[in-house]
Design a protein around this nucleic acid. Sequence first.
DNA 1: GTACGCGTAAAGTCACACTTAACGAGGTGA
DNA 2: TCACCTCGTTAAGTGTGACTTTACGCGTAC
Lengths: 181, 181
Amino acid sequence: MRGINHVRLREVREQRKISLRQLAAQVGMSAALISQVERGVTAPSLETLRKLAQALDEPLFNLLDEPEERRVAVVRRERRLRLLPPDGAVAYARISPGFGRLEVLEGVLQPGDSSSPAPWGHPSEECAVVLEGDLNVLVEGEVHSLSAGDSIYFDSRLPHLYRNDSQHRTVYIVAITPPSY
Amino acid sequence: MRGINHVRLREVREQRKISLRQLAAQVGMSAALISQVERGVTAPSLETLRKLAQALDEPLFNLLDEPEERRVAVVRRERRLRLLPPDGAVAYARISPGFGRLEVLEGVLQPGDSSSPAPWGHPSEECAVVLEGDLNVLVEGEVHSLSAGDSIYFDSRLPHLYRNDSQHRTVYIVAITPPSY
DNA sequence: GTACGCGTAAAGTCACACTTAACGAGGTGA
DNA sequence: TCACCTCGTTAAGTGTGACTTTACGCGTAC
């Protein structure tokens, strides 16, 4: 009976062991509404959904029950997609399969090279870990120096750039969500 | 003027170089509505938003403009949070800072050890890359054997488990979105 | 018993998510 | 200079469905 408007509310609420009325009181709406929403009888407004997400301390998009491809994909090292850099600086290989909400890349930077000619932003979040060598990450004009094992996390919308200012090659892994590279 | 109901529609639509009327025709709604939604004059229904997301080929949650902490966080190798495994098998270290939509972990498995006593699922997607050694990943009962450099991607809701069936230690990195470990 | 709590059902109402239609501003070609 | 596109915006009007209140049935504790 799960309609097109289904949201994963009940699941989350029950996990928190909160009753309908408790939750309703907390967000200032009627318990009946939440019941209706949980059973897909009524579609909640965005505003309502936001309030619920906040009360449950869940990111909003976590309540949205998107149809997913429940697939498993293995990518072998030698089958990785090599991303040709627009201007030949960084060598990126895509570790993730190319679908899903998550993109993982391996970047290799030779001394002096950088991931792009100029800092730029895209609407995602990313986290990079250095596997080998040293890496300078420019975010919003500020330089962060990382060594092997260090990581950096930032909102990708801030203009950014990876650069190898050392004398040896640098290898790092970047995880991006949602994919926008 | 961006209200509480703001959705990142215009941004995405303009990027695709689609006009209001084109998009409206495509999803079968009026251009005026889209204009109103884009400017935050009117809040779209979930249903409407879903249609738009589909037409633009964007995941729904990508259109939702959640208030973000536009922060940059660096985590040094020695400052990583060590996650104590519930039952002492895997040694996880959190590479990501602990906020945001993305969680990145480094897992180390000694021979014979596994990430948890039994396969389990959580509502996310994850991608794992093997850095060192060999790794068996059980997803939905099926075993996938990975060597250094190989990776696997799957819907974390499928019951899964990481296991080291080899004679030497295994190191791997897992990226998870949204965080739910 | 009766008095809580739980989730559900039914019925009513008003906001607001939508429509259609008209508007002003650019651009383009005859 | 027209007329004639197309762009996004505005204004006004309407219907529906997202909400409320109230009442119900069930379990459980005292």
